[in-house]
Design a binder for these strands. Structure first.
Lengths: 194, 194
DNA sequence: ATAAATTGCAACTGTTTGGTTGGGATTTGC
DNA sequence: GCAAATCCCAACCAAACAGTTGCAATTTAT
């Protein structure tokens, strides 16, 4: 059977996403990543360098595309609510994403692929501004950050949630709440706000 | 010189806070914790059990007191803003706290000291309710969680912040923004909301 | 006073880990 | 069609790691 090095690399990156998301950089095991990918771990070193470089490759591969599929539709606070809805969709279909985002800030000294991500974020900031035109760029950036922090927090601070909630929430209740809070953040600075 | 086992234990717990906050459970080294405390690591095993048990002891020691010093004053959205101000104060004077909170959710299967923390959180939920009396308990819990998620997110998602912000923010600007957003979350459900 | 128990440490152990190597299978360049 | 390069893996290595032990110093109980 022919070699398929691209598939091998892709399988390793996918296994890396799973393992690093689950255990973080320090907790993940190169052996396990190889096994998860169905490939010998030596391949990782040949293709990506050492553990740290591979971690960076995995993060870059995932995080640069985090916001790309999200578009702002309509205008006003409802547009922000729509953004949050899409963001939560992405967190549900790919739960590794938000975990990787947290691991990155906790375990790395420097952000990964800063410049390309800045570009992607910049376009989302514009989206926020076109939804709420009376926000200046700084305010729009701050709002975008709070929105993502809210989504990531609700997804990843699970033990804090169990300490606070007297009753476990269903996924749908969670979504509704987060979207409602996103609307609240947007409303304060919207033109229709009294 | 006389033995001072209580001081030894306290030094170990303090070193544990520093090291676990910095590196997480998987990343922290028992040797390093001992050295940080100025004590042989064997003391950890004698006093606290194995690494996991020590991690639990450290988390319990820190996290149970997280919200205890915070009190709700006044009423309405301003009371919520005051809560956030105190929360940010605590995050600044003890930056390890919010990191430990995140590590806990990422690295532990079960929350630490769940029952005692539930008690502390319950009283904060009451605080939220007395500030915003038209919230039922569930809504108050959700608001409290979003507030903490916001604070923790702004403190710990630092690489996300550098991707979004075109210009680095000063600590004071950050505080003002977060408190403003807290007010926004509170205002939507306040009686004075139009 | 002195035996029992506790504190603290340096040195040690068995295992796990990141990373490498040697060699056989497969493809590519000429 | 064959030599060089590439792909892949099992086995290997040295360093790092969690956890232990033996022993001397100190305290406590009687």
């Amino acid at each position: 059977m022919a070699w398929d090095t691209d598939t091998t690399k892709r399988k390793l990156l996918e296994a890396g996403v799973r393992q690093f998301a689950a255990a973080g950089f320090a907790g993940a095991r190169m052996e396990t990543i190889g096994a998860d990918a169905g490939v010998n771990k030596e391949r990782i070193y040949r293709y990506f360098g050492d553990k740290r470089a591979f971690f960076g490759a995995v993060l870059e591969h995932e995080l640069t595309a985090l916001l790309d599929q999200i578009v702002f539709k309509g205008s006003g606070p409802e547009s922000i609510a729509g953004f949050m809805t899409q963001l939560l969709d992405r967190c549900e279909e790919r739960p590794e994403l938000s975990r990787l985002l947290v691991w990155e800030s906790l375990e790395l000294d420097e952000p990964v692929a800063l410049e390309s991500r800045k570009l992607g974020c910049e376009s989302k900031v514009c989206g926020v501004q076109s939804a709420l035109p009376n926000l200046d760029q700084t305010k729009a950036e701050q709002l975008l950050f709070s929105l993502i922090a809210l989504a990531v927090g609700w997804c990843e601070l699970r033990h804090l949630a169990s300490s606070i909630m007297s009753t476990p929430m269903s996924l749908d209740e969670q979504r509704a709440t987060i979207i409602e809070h996103a609307r609240a953040l947007a409303s304060t600075n919207s033109p229709s706000h009294c």
